[in-house]
């Protein structure tokens, strides 16, 4: 796709509106930002212009999470180069295309990510693929840095690994509880104490971990479950996914040891903590 001046104009307009100049925007690029080779690859992607128009104001021109509008946000935009996607429906921590599309289309309640009802299905799909490519190239940059000069690792191997690392596994099957299932607060409380309370606290206020960090080493807060702020969605199916698949890039681990029925008991107990039925 031929690139025009559209993205630049969008930035200039936002810059003028927010009092930030283009040179300041350039300075916001992280020191450990994407390599030139990675940026050149992205510039030829069909999602480039869509991203510049709809995502770059917050996520930055390179997708590094430092767009000109980011300073006004209470929740930092995702750095697609270095951070993993949080809301997934797979057990390998990689979002499906549908996971990505859902995040873009509906946004994230309780976060700053807005909904984008104006985008067509085709545009959403193109954006989802573009964002996944940013993530792949970001991973490749990390691999190249980590294994620079390692004679036991070939460049081809790293390229191949970068593709594998952003490939989602089959999404988990979230079936409503079977007939005969009975919500039981005592069972839920017991499961919660054994599996969740070490981090979220016995009362659910998210106060049990001492200075938790994300995988980038940045301070992170454990969700206060009594607040009712379910960023991944408050529907029971979404809470089920967060428990079963974990939240990649954070201390929240995947609960692979629980049966479906146990996860459902936890889902309803967590909603109970939030004052929902």
């Amino acid at each position: 796709m031929k690139r025009g001046y559209g993205p630049l104009l969008v930035f200039a307009a936002i810059g003028l509106a927010t009092g930030i100049t283009l040179s300041q925007i350039a300075c916001r690029t992280p020191a450990s930002g994407p390599s030139t080779a990675a940026m050149n690859t992205l510039a030829t992607h069909e999602g480039y212009e869509l991203f510049a128009a709809h995502c770059a104001p917050c996520h930055g021109a390179t997708g590094g999470g430092r767009g000109p509008a980011a300073i006004a946000l209470s929740v930092a935009p995702r750095d697609f180069w270095h951070e993993r996607f949080r809301y997934v429906s797979t057990l390998n921590g990689v979002p499906t295309e549908e996971d990505l599309i859902q995040s873009i289309r509906y946004g994230r309640r309780f976060g700053e990510m807005p909904a984008n009802p104006q985008l067509t299905d085709t545009e959403l799909r193109t954006l989802a693929r573009y964002i996944r490519e940013i993530q792949r190239l970001g991973w490749l940059d990390v691999l190249r840095e980590e294994f620079a000069g390692d004679e036991d690792t070939s460049p081809d191997e790293l390229e191949e690994i970068s593709h594998i690392r952003v490939r989602p596994r089959e999404p988990i099957h979230v079936a409503r509880p079977e007939r005969g299932f009975r919500r039981d607060l005592d069972t839920g409380r017991e499961l919660y104490a054994a599996n969740c309370a070490s981090c979220h606290g016995l009362t659910g206020r998210g106060d049990a971990l001492d200075k938790p960090l994300d995988e980038q080493g940045k301070p992170i807060s454990v969700r206060n479950l009594t607040s009712g702020e379910f960023r991944g969605g408050a529907k029971v199916e979404e809470i089920f996914k967060r428990i079963r698949c974990g939240v990649p890039g954070t201390p929240m681990s995947a609960a692979v040891a629980l049966t479906d029925e146990e996860v459902w008991q936890l889902v309803y107990y967590v909603r109970y903590l939030a004052g929902r039925t």
Partner: peptide, 10 residues
């Protein structure tokens, strides 16, 4: 980095 990142409850 090369292998799958992994975070499982035990």
């Amino acid at each position: 980095k090369k292998n799958e990142p992994f975070n499982r409850s035990m």
